[in-house]
Amino acid sequence: MILFYKKNSKESEEVIEILKDFENVKYVDVEENKSLAEEYSVKVFPTLIVSTDDDISEENVFVGLKEIESFLEVEEEDF
C-alpha cells in the first residue's frame, strides 16, 4: 500500500493514525515527492493505492478519509 499525504492536513493525519498498525504501508509526503505523485496521477490527498504489482486501476485507489475508512472496514471483514 502507498499512502500519498500532505503534512498539516487533518484528513492525512487521521489516515496515518488509522494505518499505523499496518506493516506494508509506504508513506509518501507529496510536498517532498511531487514527481512520484505525478507518476501515479495523484491529485487529492490523502490517497491510498493498494496493489500487489504495478497494475494500478481505479478499483484499488481510494481517495479521501471516507473512502479509505470504507476500504479498510471491508478488508477487516474479510479476515
Rank of each mutant, 00 (worst) to 15 (best):
65 L>R: 01
58 E>K: 07
74 V>P: 06
29 D>H: 03
72 L>A: 13
27 Y>D: 05
75 E>F: 07
53 D>E: 10
41 S>A: 14
27 Y>S: 05
53 D>T: 14
71 F>Y: 03
46 P>F: 00
79 F>E: 15
24 N>T: 15
58 E>M: 10
28 V>N: 05
15 V>M: 02
51 S>P: 00
32 E>C: 05
41 S>K: 11
51 S>H: 05
45 F>G: 02
76 E>F: 13
4 F>N: 05
67 E>Y: 03
49 I>T: 04
27 Y>V: 12
36 L>T: 08
12 S>F: 01
49 I>H: 00
36 L>V: 09
26 K>F: 10
13 E>R: 02
1 M>G: 13
15 V>L: 07
38 E>K: 11
55 D>R: 13
21 D>L: 14
9 S>C: 15
23 E>S: 15
44 V>M: 10
45 F>S: 00
11 E>F: 06
18 I>E: 12
75 E>V: 09
14 E>F: 08
16 I>R: 02
55 D>N: 15
67 E>W: 05
21 D>P: 12
60 N>K: 10
19 L>W: 08
67 E>G: 01
61 V>N: 03
21 D>H: 15
44 V>C: 11
10 K>H: 10
54 D>N: 13
65 L>T: 03
38 E>M: 09
66 K>M: 12
77 E>L: 14
73 E>V: 14
49 I>N: 01
47 T>P: 06
50 V>R: 01
70 S>Y: 10
23 E>C: 08
37 A>D: 02
50 V>E: 03
57 S>D: 00
74 V>E: 14
19 L>Y: 12
8 N>K: 11
44 V>K: 10
72 L>Y: 04
74 V>D: 14
32 E>A: 08
78 D>Y: 06
21 D>M: 13
36 L>H: 00
28 V>E: 02
52 T>N: 15
47 T>Q: 09
71 F>N: 00
4 F>H: 05
20 K>F: 08
7 K>I: 13
6 K>A: 10
44 V>E: 14
11 E>I: 01
72 L>K: 04
53 D>Y: 07
48 L>S: 04
49 I>Q: 04
55 D>Q: 13
78 D>L: 15
3 L>T: 00
25 V>Y: 03
27 Y>Q: 07
43 K>P: 05
70 S>R: 08
25 V>S: 01
10 K>M: 10
36 L>E: 03
1 M>H: 09
43 K>W: 10
68 I>M: 00
61 V>T: 05
10 K>W: 01
37 A>W: 03
36 L>P: 00
33 N>Q: 11
53 D>G: 09
37 A>S: 08
34 K>Q: 14
22 F>R: 15
44 V>G: 09
18 I>Q: 12
75 E>M: 07
38 E>T: 08
41 S>Y: 09
9 S>Q: 11
49 I>F: 00
64 G>P: 07
32 E>P: 03
9 S>D: 12
6 K>D: 06
14 E>I: 11
63 V>T: 04
7 K>Q: 07
78 D>C: 05
42 V>R: 04
42 V>H: 01
47 T>R: 02
35 S>L: 07
44 V>W: 08
61 V>E: 06
63 V>W: 00
49 I>C: 00
31 E>L: 01
